[in-house]
Amino acid sequence: MTENPGIASVADLLAHAHAMESEAHERYLDLAEQLELHRNVEVATLFRKLAQIEQLHVRKILDRVGALELPHLSPWEYRWLDDEAPEAASIGEAHYMMTPHHALSLALRAEQRALDFYSSVLEGGGNSSVQELARELAVEEREHVELVKTWLAKYPEPGADWAEDPDPPVYQE
């Protein structure tokens, strides 16, 4: 696990947490919309559910923020471990014929990255209130990971031909 010593204050950590949860929420909404447009109702519904859950998380974070003033961070000033906010499901991995198994695997990877992020903050040291908050957030995140895991267990991996489409793509414009 990479250490993340960059998070220095509770406000800083909350700014990260807030950005992470809202990005995750937006991302699931985007994915839901994409799949709705491609008439993959089952997966779209699933993404909508995930989006709802993330929205609750956003609210929870905002409750913690209370009257605290958060720093302004440009998108590239966040100290994520990766290219972007960890909990946002990787949009490039979507597919119009994806199954709930794929969707939940995608979500699981995202939740796991979120957990990794908080763990890295924990390992990075910092003051005790940052540590304490990171620990709490990590516990919550671990619950999500477990939740998605049980969910995923209900959807076994589909056969190798899951993406087979007998029709060709459509010529446009």
Binding site: L62, A67, L68, L70, H72, S74
Partner: peptide, 13 residues
């Protein structure tokens, strides 16, 4: 909360 953070929702607008 006073967030000037470029949050997903600011971009979403």
């Amino acid at each position: 909360m006073n967030t000037q953070t470029v949050s997903a929702s600011a971009a979403r607008a």
